[in-house]
Computed example of a mutant assay.
Amino acid sequence: MLSITYLSSAVEQWSDDELEELLRHARGTNATVEVTGMLLYSGGNFIQTLEGPDEAVDAIMAKVEDDSRHQGVLVVRREEVADRLFSGWSMGFRRVSPGEAEEIPGFTDYLDTGTIEGADTRRHAVMTFHRVFRERIR
């Protein structure tokens, strides 16, 4: 199984509607090809980790690299993994206050803590990229 973490910048800021459309499309596509992962977006910048069958992850990355809405796509980590780090994650999007977020079923405080249940230290490089991203958006 392949895990890729990449960074990119949006050519223009994405609206909530554009992000929601991306998530709708990605949920359907990713489920059919057994790809999981997570995506963070802030201030026109993305960091995403994709994990799943090699061919499926590579195909998604090819689409990202060809997407004219992205620039500066940089793969910062590519590795074969035995286990998924984001196996139970389902993408969602909604702008909410911190208090409202805690009331959402499935809420995780990942953006504050960087903690993922079941994550081990061998995947520390990916976690470092996500931590740095979180710190920059504050």
Rank of each mutant, 00 (worst) to 15 (best):
G88A: 14
D58A: 09
I60F: 00
H70G: 12
I116E: 06
V57I: 01
Y110L: 15
I116Y: 09
A62C: 01
R77Y: 02
R123L: 07
M61I: 08
E55S: 04
A59Y: 02
M91H: 14
A119C: 07
E65K: 15
D112T: 12
G106S: 09
I116A: 06
I116F: 10
P105S: 11
D58Q: 12
A119P: 00
R77S: 06
P53T: 00
I104G: 08
D112Y: 10
M127Y: 03
L111R: 11
E117R: 11
E100R: 01
E79Y: 02
E80H: 04
A62W: 00
A59Q: 03
A125M: 04
R84Q: 08
E117G: 13
G106M: 09
A119T: 09
R123I: 06
D67I: 01
L111G: 06
V76M: 08
E100D: 11
T121M: 11
A62Y: 00
G106Y: 13
E79Q: 06
D67M: 04
P105M: 08
Y110Q: 10
V73S: 05
P98L: 12
R122N: 05
G114T: 09
E51V: 06
H70P: 07
E79R: 03
E65R: 15
T128L: 09
G106E: 13
A62D: 07
